[in-house]
Amino acid sequence: MLGLADLVFIMLGISALLSVPATVLAVLSRDLLKAVILSALQSTMYTLMFFLLMAPDIVLVYVAVSIGFMSLLIILLIKKVGRYEGRLG
């Protein structure tokens, strides 16, 4: 029978593993708006990890900065410079 501590470690492993393909796809994608959404997914996974590590104060700051302000700033920037990344070389 699995105890609660084992389940916490399993959830930590799952959320840490799922944040890796989100980051890789956010770096590789040509559509910058899609990259913003994928980095928001990475932030959500990190939120779950910080919650499982019993750090509610870090969660309160990390969610506001990483889902809220960073997405707002990058979307304002995309509105200036265009949505699709040009082909480089």
Binding site: A40, T47, M54, P56, L60, V63, I67, S71, I75
Partner: peptide
């Protein structure tokens, strides 16, 4: 550990904010 509860409220509000940003764009 009931002190962990404000994380849920904050997460709800900022997910809604992300939704509104993309809709405005």
């Amino acid at each position: 550990n009931p002190v962990l509860i404000p994380c849920a409220i904050v997460l709800t509000l900022w997910i809604y904010a992300l939704d509104i940003y993309v809709a405005k764009y």
